[in-house]
Simulated scan of single mutants.
Amino acid sequence: MKGKILLVTGLATGYVLGARAGRGRYEQIKANWLKLYETEPVQKQVRTVQGFAKARVSAVPTTLFSGAKTVVKIVRSNRSPGQKLDDTLGEVGDVKDEIGDIADDSSSR
């Protein structure tokens, strides 16, 4: 579901930013977007995201910083370039999973 929302948002954003239909069409899209944004289902999700951000905002930077420190250690090591790449990709995957766990923990509340 999250992927579909991101896809639709990305497509809409790309259209708005790339549209060459002029200011009138832009204003029309903007007005429709604001109407949609103000609906209760959308606002409910906005409140959910805000709650997540407030509850878990401190955990994400800590996780990212920890992952970045590990990547720096990997790059500075005496391993071969291939080993460094493999270890770095593994660490990036671990950080991604940790952030996903943070999001899952917050959404299950």
Rank of each mutant, 00 (worst) to 15 (best):
M1A: 07
K2R: 11
G3C: 10
G3D: 11
G3K: 14
I5Q: 12
L6D: 08
T9C: 07
T9I: 08
T9V: 09
G10S: 09
L11R: 05
L11G: 05
L11Y: 04
A12H: 03
A12L: 09
A12Y: 01
T13P: 00
Y15Q: 07
V16W: 00
V16S: 05
L17G: 12
L17C: 13
G18A: 06
A19L: 06
R20N: 15
A21K: 05
A21E: 07
R23Y: 07
R23M: 09
R23G: 05
R25A: 13
Y26M: 08
Y26F: 10
E27Y: 10
I29W: 00
I29E: 00
K30M: 10
N32Q: 13
N32L: 15
T39N: 11
E40K: 04
P41A: 03
P41Y: 04
Q45H: 14
Q45P: 05
V46I: 14
T48F: 13
G51R: 06
G51D: 06
A53G: 09
V57D: 14
A59V: 13
T62R: 14
T62Y: 15
T63N: 08
L64C: 10
L64R: 08
L64G: 08
S66C: 03
A68F: 10
A68H: 09
A68D: 07
A68G: 09
K69E: 14
K69Y: 15
T70Y: 03
V72Y: 14
V72I: 15
K73I: 06
V75C: 13
R76G: 12
R76I: 11
N78S: 15
R79V: 11
R79Q: 12
P81H: 06
P81K: 08
G82M: 11
L85V: 05
L85Q: 04
L85G: 02
D86V: 04
D87V: 00
T88F: 01
T88V: 08
V92E: 04
D94P: 00
K96H: 12
D97A: 12
D97W: 07
D97C: 07
I99V: 15
G100M: 14
G100D: 13
A103K: 07
D105I: 04
D105Q: 07
S106D: 05
S106F: 03
S108R: 04
S108C: 04
R109W: 05
